[in-house]
């Protein structure tokens, strides 16, 4: 059967295997065993062809076939990434023959594509007014696309790249980086020079701006801030106003934290109409519905986390918000939940003492207090309750409630545990009010009130791009931190939101959060175990350098541009740096904070300098980096390796990722070929594979195999340098409640400010029951002479070419190619 390919213009042409082979060959250039890879992809591609396949389907089929083979060798991911980038080049720039021609095309089309974006109302018109396009175009370096893994190219293209009104893609990856860099230089005196500096860093993946910035940077709708943190006041006007604000912030993209502690409890009196309140739960459900209503055509729900203090009368119902069963009108299926816990509560848990719940209407100052002041006032309210002078209260055991929180956490992964007193007592911006909550991802620590919706602006240094000759490049880390802080500071003057209180707070505090990602990627390359002193010391040293450089740069910016408006009266203005607040917190808590206090840099010099002025109220926060970690091609935040192989979902379907560091380490020892099938069979767990040496097993433990205390120790050592917080995902094998209580008590004792999702190891894991899909054998059985690599590799054997009529009918790639038993 002859196969014809339908071109974009509708014309048909005969399928040209040579042309496809050449494209695959180019994509495999420079890789070890490239000829074998080309043959393997080409012969498997034949299985997926059918008459009338479009050129776009053909491109996708080649990529999917390459991806299917990632389990044999991560090099296939490189091939898939290159093939995908090439399809983007073709659509945006047209055909090209050589790398030189590609670079020339990049330069040639850059200005016209930006102009088109402006003409169509997609991009900020200042982009075509303020920049020297010749200089920018010449700096574009397409070879940097080679840094992207397949998932990175997909994420950039699908989530961040600008498309014309007619759906045409307008950006190749390097246009995208340059556009973001330009969009963050609009307030500079020499915008071209700064755009080039920012472009150099981001296009080399040395640091990345966070999601909202990458979505909206340089566009006509520059909502660039990442996190919005607000509290709902106890009046119906403000509840309505908050609902409106959530709608607008969701429309603009941005994670939201929302505290509901101030809302009076269910049954609490309402004087104006002589009735009683329904409490906060129904209003939370209303906002939960808003998150689904404003959802970009239903494709992307809004993202929000509700916070409440655990002395609120309705806290037991708050714990049920994420339960699957029960009244759906008293559930939040979309929004997340977090609990805002005091030192007083943790002490009462330790001492097995009672805990009292109150109606906020009767204890109105409690939500504004923290630390020892909270404890004192709380004790007074307890006395009033016992004396019968409060209308509503409930007495329970502190341990009983702690267990209830942890049982809910086990079952629903909510509420996340966050410690209000560690956060408030360590705050350097404590002159501008109480911090009532953290944000969607639990890394932000900023105050808010009725006039202030706090805002944070994030970026993350990619640690894996800061390793040179097997060691951290401290000078490069410092450089990245300094440039990132300037870029973040610029963002504040450029971004806008639809909530006046957010813009106001952003201007008054200029809060930024510089974090890191790729920690596990780095320690694996160093051969360290996540749960080792080497790793703990390394994260300590990394964050000390990031913290020092970020603070120093903010002080420099204050000299150049002036301090942030709320600087006077802040702890910065008293010469205090984040590390100093550990002792201050310990003194207030009256219980030791169990964290190493080693320092390496000249902090006395910096203490003097910060007194003179700071440009930003906060400087550091470690975000989850779930999406930008994909673009950077590294492990997210401080997270451990979840598995050596795992499934990733993209808009083009699921595909398999394999830990390249492990493959490399096994290859160095000549073990990869002999162990890879065992690794796949064991779902990415190498611990029971005999031939793998113990040292590698220690380095490549997965999340559920590590001690949960190692997550806490890494967080605590990083936290001591960070003025905001860390999105600390937790992974637990144990379901023992005493263990769980000890672990979360341990987090508080180490001064960890917040924890994020709790991932419980599933009780049962799926067995590898499916017979191995062995396309190699299928092809060989039909006579292929192609040399085989990887799983199913066979020696010898004969020929091929599968008839087109044998092509699967289920589309491309995964699930599309022949399946065992079908």
């Amino acid at each position: 059967m002859n196969i014809t390919v339908v071109k974009r213009n509708g014309e048909r042409e005969p399928y040209d295997a040579n042309k496809i082979n050449l494209a695959i060959e180019r994509a495999a250039e420079g890789l070890e065993d490239s000829i074998a890879w080309v043959t393997q992809i080409a012969s498997e591609l034949e299985l997926t062809l059918f008459d009338g396949i479009s050129t776009q389907q053909l491109d996708e089929a080649v990529i999917q076939v390459a991806l299917q083979n990632v389990k044999d060798d991560p090099a296939f991911d490189v091939v898939a990434a290159r093939l995908l980038v090439k399809t983007i080049y073709k659509r945006v720039l047209g055909d090209y023959e050589s790398p030189e021609e590609l670079k020339a095309l990049h330069a040639q089309h850059f200005a016209e594509n930006v102009h088109r974006g402006v003409d169509e109302g997609l991009l900020d018109e200042r982009l075509v007014q303020m920049f020297d396009f010749d200089r920018l175009a010449q700096a574009l370096e397409p070879t940097r696309d080679g840094l992207l893994k397949y998932i990175g190219v997909v994420t950039l293209n699908n989530r961040y790249g600008i498309k014309g009104r007619n759906g045409d893609p307008l950006e190749v990856p390097q246009y995208f980086w340059m556009r973001i860099a330009m969009g963050l230089s609009l307030n500079e005196q020499d915008p071209t020079a700064h755009a080039l500096t920012f472009y150099e860093k981001m296009s080399k993946l040395e640091y990345l701006a966070a999601g909202s910035t990458l979505v909206n940077g340089g566009t006509s709708y520059p909502q660039l801030a990442n996190c919005f943190v607000m509290e709902m006041q106890d009046d119906i006007e403000h509840i309505a106003k908050t609902t409106r604000d959530v709608m607008w912030l969701t429309k603009g993209t941005g994670g939201i934290g929302l505290a509901v502690t101030k809302l009076r409890a269910q049954g609490s009196p309402i004087r104006s109409n002589n009735t009683s309140s329904t409490g906060p739960i129904p209003f939370m459900h209303t906002i939960d519905s808003v998150l689904r209503a404003v959802s970009r055509g239903g494709k992307k729900f809004g993202a929000l986390c509700f916070y409440i203090e655990n002395w609120h009368m309705d806290f037991p119902e708050f714990l049920d918000l994420r339960q699957n069963s029960g009244d759906p009108y008293r559930r939040t299926r979309t929004a997340n939940t977090a609990v805002w816990i005091s030192d007083e509560f943790m002490k009462r848990v330790e001492n097995d003492e009672p805990w009292y719940l109150f109606d906020p209407l009767e204890v109105q100052d409690l939500n504004e207090l923290y630390g020892s002041a909270f404890s004192k006032r709380y004790a007074e309210y307890v006395e009033m309750a016992e004396a019968g002078t409060l209308n509503m209260f409930k007495k329970i055991g502190a341990r009983e409630q702690f267990k209830a929180i942890l049982i809910s956490l086990q079952g629903t992964s909510h509420p996340w545990l966050t410690w209000k007193d560690t956060i408030n007592n360590r705050a350097l911006n404590n002159n501008s009010g109480t911090i009532h909550l953290s944000n969607l991802c639990t890394e932000i620590c900023l105050p808010q009130d009725v006039d202030n919706v706090s805002v944070c602006n994030l970026a993350s240094i990619n640690l894996s791009q800061h390793v040179v000759d097997g060691a951290m490049d401290w000078a490069k880390i410092e450089e990245s931190a300094r440039i990132a802080v300037r870029q973040l500071d610029n963002l504040i003057d450029i971004t806008r939101s639809s909530v006046a209180e957010a813009d106001y707070s952003n201007e008054q505090n200029r809060a930024v959060g510089l974090g890191v990602m790729g920690f596990t990627d780095v320690i694996e390359r160093f051969g360290y175990s996540y749960e080792s002193e080497e790793s703990y010391d390394l994260i300590d040293e990394i964050m000390e350098h990031v913290s020092y450089a970020a603070i120093d740069e903010s002080a420099n910016l204050a000299q150049e541009r002036g301090s942030y408006p709320n600087f006077e009266g802040s702890r910065w203005s008293q010469g205090i740096v984040p590390l100093d607040t550990v002792d201050l917190t310990e003194a207030d808590r009256g219980v030791p904070i169990e964290v190493n206090r080693t320092t390496r840099l000249d902090w006395d010099r910096l203490r003097v300098k910060v007194k003179g002025g700071m440009r930003n109220a906060t400087l550091m926060a470690i975000a989850p980096t779930a999406s930008i970690g994909l673009v950077a091609g590294t492990t997210p935040g401080l997270d451990p390796q979840f598995s050596q192989i795992f499934s990733r979902s993209t808009s083009s379907g699921k595909f398999l990722e394999i830990n390249r560091n492990l493959v490399e380490a096994l290859r160095e020892r000549g073990l990869w070929e002999s162990t890879r099938e065992d690794i796949l069979r064991s779902q990415g767990d190498i611990q029971n594979i005999e031939s793998i040496p113990q040292a590698l097993k220690d380095t490549f433990k997965t999340s559920f195999q590590l001690s949960p205390y190692s997550f806490l120790e890494v967080a605590a050592r990083a936290q001591k340098w960070i003025d905001q917080a860390i999105s600390r995902n937790m992974y637990l094998d144990t379901r023992d409640m005493d263990d769980l209580m000890s672990i979360y008590m341990g987090a508080w004792k180490r001064g960890v400010k917040t924890t994020y999702y709790l991932h419980m190891k599933p009780r049962h894991t799926a067995e590898q029951s499916t017979v191995k899909v062995n396309k190699a054998e299928q092809i060989n059985a039909q006579g292929s002479s192609a040399p085989r690599k990887g799983f199913g590799a066979t020696t010898g054997s004969s020929t091929p070419v599968v008839a087109a009529s044998a092509a699967p009918k289920k589309g491309f790639g995964f699930g599309g190619a022949a399946k065992a038993g079908e």
């Binding site: 729900f301 989850p624 999406s627 979840f642 499934s647 796949l680 779902q683 419980m760 894991t765 899909v773």
Partner: peptide, 30 residues
């Protein structure tokens, strides 16, 4: 329910763990 319980996917005939980051809803700010 706890999203981490949805932890296994089948790809190409193999059961493999799902990247936990796929389960997070934090990409609005990230």
């Amino acid at each position: 329910m706890n999203p981490s319980a949805e932890g296994t996917a089948t790809i190409d005939g193999y059961a493999v763990p799902v990247d936990p980051m796929d389960l997070l809803r934090c990409d609005s700010c990230q």
